[in-house]
Amino acid sequence: MRRRGRRTNEERRGESQERLLDAAESLFARNGFNGVSTKDIGQAADVDPSLLHYYFTSKAGLYVAVIARRAGYVNAARREALEAYARQAGDALTVAGVVRAYVESTFELARKGDAGYLNYLTVIAQMNSTPAGGVLGLETTPFDEVVQLFIDLLRRASPGSTDPDLYWFYHMLSGAITLSWARTGRIDELSSGQCRSTDFDAIADHMVSVFSHGLDRR
């Protein structure tokens, strides 16, 4: 039997990995992928930088692991909301309803998240503006499957829209979401404080209002 208070090698490895992930998430959020070195991450995590390469192979491997660590929560929240709306609406799906389910579940995470989760959302915002293949291992993202579900429901709600219409619609919506996740403070300055980049309730409400009619045929 293991003596109480002593950690196993597996527990120590897990703790080191979590410290590296937490430190990398915070530093990537603040300085971006290219503005952070493996030495910076090791020092912030109080872990020998050689362990970063041992556990994650490279800085890019660690970045991919940071993205993957919380992606399941984002995907689960979005999928649950979209599927619940689809069941409730049946054949009466609307673009407004699909958008509301996707956007409100997305921003519920931002409203409830701790500092680490908000750092994560900032990293996702950066990833969304990184060219495909810009980080090895992120040629696709963990979010793609649920994004396709969102587009499939839009297709049912707006049968007159072409696939390019739907994908461009997602492109614009995704940009608005991740700009908001980045919390740049730009809207605060432009509006002289009337709008706040941390007001996720107002952001979600306005985003639903703007995008609900984005596939209307004129």
Rank of each mutant, 00 (worst) to 15 (best):
E108N: 09
G116F: 02
T162V: 01
L93V: 04
D114N: 13
S105L: 04
C195S: 11
G35Q: 02
R30D: 13
R79H: 10
A81F: 02
H213L: 10
R218I: 07
Q43N: 15
W168I: 11
D163A: 07
L173C: 02
A23T: 09
R186T: 14
S16D: 13
L62Y: 12
F28H: 11
T184F: 02
S209P: 00
A29I: 09
Y54S: 12
E15W: 02
L149D: 13
R111A: 08
S212F: 00
R30H: 12
R6W: 05
L51V: 10
L27E: 11
F211R: 03
P142F: 06
A86T: 10
Q43D: 15
T38V: 15
T178H: 15
D144L: 14
S26D: 06
D199G: 13
S180I: 06
G116N: 11
V64T: 07
A71E: 12
V208L: 01
F200V: 07
Q43E: 15
H53E: 11
R69M: 03
A157H: 09
L138Q: 06
P131G: 07
S37W: 07
W181G: 06
R13S: 10
G35L: 08
E11N: 03
V103N: 05
D188R: 13
I41W: 05
A81Q: 06
V36P: 06
S26P: 00
A23H: 03
E83W: 01
L82P: 00
N128K: 11
S105V: 05
G185A: 09
E108S: 14
N34D: 15
L179H: 10
I203S: 05
A125N: 11
G116L: 03
T198W: 14
D188A: 12
T94Y: 09
F28K: 11
G42Y: 02
D114W: 02
V74G: 04
S105D: 01
L51A: 14
P159A: 13
R183T: 11
N75C: 02
Q194Y: 12
D152I: 00
G113L: 06
E15A: 14
G90C: 06
A115P: 01
L179Q: 07
V103H: 06
H213I: 10
D205V: 14
L153I: 11
R3S: 09
G160T: 07
V146G: 08
H53F: 15
V103Y: 02
G32W: 13
A115M: 08
H53W: 09
A115F: 04
D144T: 14
Y170T: 00
V146K: 09
E18V: 00
F33R: 07
S105A: 10
R2E: 02
R217Q: 12
R186Y: 14
T178P: 05
G133P: 08
D188T: 14
M207T: 15
R155H: 15
Q148H: 14
L153C: 14
Y117D: 06
S129F: 09
G116H: 04
V64H: 08
R87F: 08
R30Y: 03
R100S: 01
R12H: 01
L153E: 10
D205R: 15
G113A: 06
G72Q: 09
F211D: 01
R100N: 01
A125E: 09
D165F: 04
A86C: 11
V103R: 03
